[in-house]
Design a protein around this nucleic acid. Structure first.
Length: 765
DNA sequence: GAGTTTGAAACT
DNA sequence: CAGTTTCAAACTC
């Protein structure tokens, strides 16, 4: 079924729709770590999947994101991806039993490298050593890195609460970045992935290869746990490259055995994000675990390092609607998080597992979002699994940073099905929840800008996903009006940057990703549009005035955000002009594929080593004014800058002086502000207190002598006192005391004058 | 607050 | 790819 109407397709950037454009094989030749013994033609790639340069899905259950759909039109496979399954051999059979029907997944399981040993250190890390001689090392393509039999290690961290280890499959391509690193330990040493799950700041490190830039993990209640890792190879490579490692953990609810009794099977998929030149690559690692139905996952949190991206992402899973078929694996594409960092993953218990699938029409309440480790909540992204996953469709726009989620929640049974031609023909949709066209409302939700990662998420083609495509409408959240009272409050409560991602297949859970501006800007009433009014003004040409708000000059637009509280005039960068906005986005991406990527990226060193992605081009400012983007970002210019007369480098005395002065000025301003605030409150309080005490005199009250002039003079005295204290380097406590003493003297003088005035002129002079 | 400067992005 | 134009923010007065 089509998720995007042809009209909409025309509006979307090429990166979105042109699945052929991003052929991962070009730069990242498909490498099957566990290649089938016999050369097998790759199945036709699904458009959205092909956008992913490399998709590795080893675990059938977890690959449902791309392959769960069993309908005839379901996506075929992810064969192009490198695949490596690192799991005890005996567990492999269990994985095949779960769900997947794709051939690639089966073949993968047949050729999984065997793990020779599993080491569980005390720090919740699991090291898996691959057995030598794994069939994966054939080296299908020239660029293929080969797992070294002797030491390919996979370090899995963060054992789930149930004790199930999360294992990461490490495709041999993982080593590729290492080869280009130039580090001494790049070659010859076993590649090791470390995944340390700490509440505060998760760290995922890949030894000897590259540095991970960030991670994001989403756990789908009861059924899946996905983890995204972002890896960035050394800068020395041709261009910035970011690899995302997605770990998907599928939990089999029916499993009654103890958590420890069943070993998890891991599949992996790695997405490598790179510059336009370098196609992204994705590794997804999934884990199929039989667990106790109730919350095996509990509230597992995976903190992810807040890396370069200022936007952070919080992942919160909500109780899913009970799947009718627990065995059905539900995979949730987590790459919706894009470049955003996921800080928290909260996995909630399933509500009612035994509930019949057909009755799950009502949206369940979204659990409160839990945010961990961040201050600027406005920048946090939240992934909240929705309870109506079958009705959630996610459309991601690779490279565009914009991701769209279409939610089609179940409506009443009497509701009629959408007008679209595609859905009615699909028999699989019939049992699914029909969407009332007249009553349904749609919500437009452009999703989080992928700042660093070219998103690769297959179109949700599952039968459950309802297509209410009214031709020109862009990707939207579609919800029945009757459910809005339930859903909207949830959305309202969502922290900015909520991520709603769909569940596929039997999907019991959906996620939505909403950037903060999208949530905050759009008033809820405006957020919902009746589908009946499908006349979305797509034909409206972008007028001159509109262009002003939709070109790169607008920071909001450049940041992939809606304008909010801006001073723009005739702004088109809002939901009311979605089509125009999409056109503008497309135009921008056509001109510059990385137009929506953050300018400040990560350097080759640690996280703190940020640097401008393109470098500045300053000529007159010496890179010591805010004209310079590097200086503005408080980073030093790098070798890629083309500035002239640059003084923004480490040893620059001008820079040091400037920084020192700036710091001193800032401190001074803060102190003065604090002092003023405190004194102001004290004066106000004092005047309030003195009011009743002096009213009996019949004369002019003392505080009436505190005229504006007197108050200003008093403040001058106090400020002078503060400055003197500062100049003499008095401690703050002493300074405050001096100021208060001065204030006391001023007050006594005022009172004294008031008394004199009353004496001299008892009759209200 | 108006005018100038500046550099990024768009445009050619 | 280089030069020019446009634009909005930074900066100055």
């Amino acid at each position: 079924m089509d998720v995007v109407s042809p009209e909409l397709n025309s509006l979307l950037p090429d990166e979105i729709m042109d699945t052929e454009a991003i052929a991962m094989e070009e730069e990242l030749p498909a490498e099957h770590l566990a290649a089938p013994p016999q050369p097998e033609p790759d199945p036709p790639q699904v458009p959205m999947e092909t956008e992913v340069p490399e998709i590795v899905s080893l675990c059938p259950a977890t690959t449902s994101m791309q392959m769960t759909s069993t309908s005839s039109d379901a996506q075929s496979s992810t064969s192009s991806g490198t695949q490596l399954l690192l799991a005890p051999s005996g567990l492999i059979a269990g994985t095949t039993t779960t769900t997947t029907t794709t051939t690639s997944a089966k073949t993968l399981t047949q050729n999984l490298p065997k793990i020779s040993s599993v080491t569980v250190p005390a720090n919740h890390q699991l090291i898996i050593n691959k057995v030598a001689g794994a069939p994966a090392a054939d080296g299908k393509s020239p660029g293929t890195a080969v797992l070294k039999p002797e030491g390919q290690k996979l370090l899995v961290a963060g054992l789930s609460k149930t004790g199930q280890p999360i294992m990461l499959a490490l495709p041999h391509t993982w080593n590729k970045p290492a080869t280009t690193q130039g580090a001494g330990d790049a070659k010859g040493q076993p590649t090791q992935i470390k995944m340390v799950t700490t509440v505060g700041k998760p760290v995922i490190a890949v030894s000897s290869a590259s540095q991970l830039m960030g991670t994001s993990t989403t756990l789908q209640a009861q059924q899946l746990k996905t983890l995204q890792l972002t890896k960035k190879p050394p800068v020395s490579t041709a261009g910035p490259m970011i690899t995302k490692l997605i770990i998907t953990k599928a939990l089999n609810n029916k499993g009654l055995s103890s958590p420890a009794s069943v070993a998890p099977v891991v599949t992996g998929r790695v997405v490598t994000q790179s510059t336009p030149v370098t196609p992204p690559r994705t590794i997804t690692i999934g884990e199929t675990v039989s667990t106790v139905p109730q919350n095996t996952s509990g509230n597992s949190k995976v903190a992810i390092s807040p890396l370069k991206s200022p936007s952070k992402l919080t992942v919160v899973s909500v109780a899913s609607q009970s799947p009718n078929s627990p065995q059905k694996s539900v995979t949730l594409p987590l790459n919706v998080a894009l470049g955003q960092q996921i800080l928290t993953v909260q996995q909630s218990a399933a509500t009612s597992p035994a509930k019949a699938g057909t009755s799950q029409s009502t949206a369940q309440t979204v659990k409160p979002v839990q945010t961990v480790g961040g201050v600027g909540t406005s920048q946090f992204k939240t992934i909240i699994p929705l309870t109506t996953p079958p009705n959630v469709q996610q459309i991601q726009v690779p490279g565009s940073r914009f991701h769209y989620v279409r939610l089609v929640t179940a409506t009443t049974g009497s509701s009629t099905v959408q007008s679209g031609s595609s859905t009615s023909t699909n028999p699989s949709i019939q049992p699914a929840k029909p969407v009332m066209m007249n009553a349904a409302v749609r919500m437009s939700v452009p999703i989080v800008p992928a700042q660093t990662v070219k998103q690769v998420v297959p179109k949700p083609l599952t039968s459950a996903a309802q297509v209410v495509t009214t031709s020109q409408t862009p990707q939207r959240l579609i919800m029945p009006a009757t459910h809005l009272p339930q859903i909207q409050p949830n959305l309202t409560n969502l922290p900015p940057g909520t991520v709603l991602a769909p569940a596929h297949g039997s999907g019991n859970m959906g996620y939505a990703v909403l950037p903060a501006p999208y949530v905050t800007q759009i008033p809820q009433p405006a957020f919902v549009t009746l589908t009946s009014s499908s006349t979305f003004s797509t034909a409206t040409p972008i007028q001159t005035q509109a262009r002003l708000s939709l070109n790169g000059y607008c920071d909001c637009f450049a940041n992939g955000e809606f304008c909010n509280n801006c001073n723009c005039v005739n702004c088109f960068n809002n939901l009311d002009h979605e089509s125009e906005r999409l056109k503008a986005i497309k135009a921008c991406l056509d001109r510059n594929p990385v137009a929506f990527k953050p300018k400040i990226g990560k350097g080759k060193e640690g996280e703190s080593d940020r640097r401008h992605s393109k470098g500045c081009n300053c000529k007159k400012s010496g890179c010591l004014k805010n004209y310079c983007e590097c200086y503005e970002a408080k980073i030093m210019c790098s070798s890629i800058c083309k500035c002239m007369g640059c003084k923004n480098f480490e040893e620059s005395p001008e820079r040091k002086t400037l920084m020192h002065l700036a710091d001193a000025a800032e401190v001074r301003v803060q102190q003065q502000t604090a002092a003023k605030t405190k004194l102001s409150s004290q004066i106000s309080d004092l005047l309030t207190r003195t009011t009743p005490a002096v009213t009996s005199g019949g004369g002019k009250l003392p505080y009436t002598f505190v005229t504006k002039e007197v108050a200003e003079a008093t403040c001058d005295c106090l400020l002078e006192q503060a400055e003197q204290a500062e100049l003499t380097n008095q401690p703050q406590a002493v300074a405050e005391r001096l100021i208060l003493e001065e204030f006391g003297r001023c007050l006594r003088r005022i009172i004294s004058f008031a008394g004199k005035a009353k004496t001299d002129c008892p009759i209200n002079c």
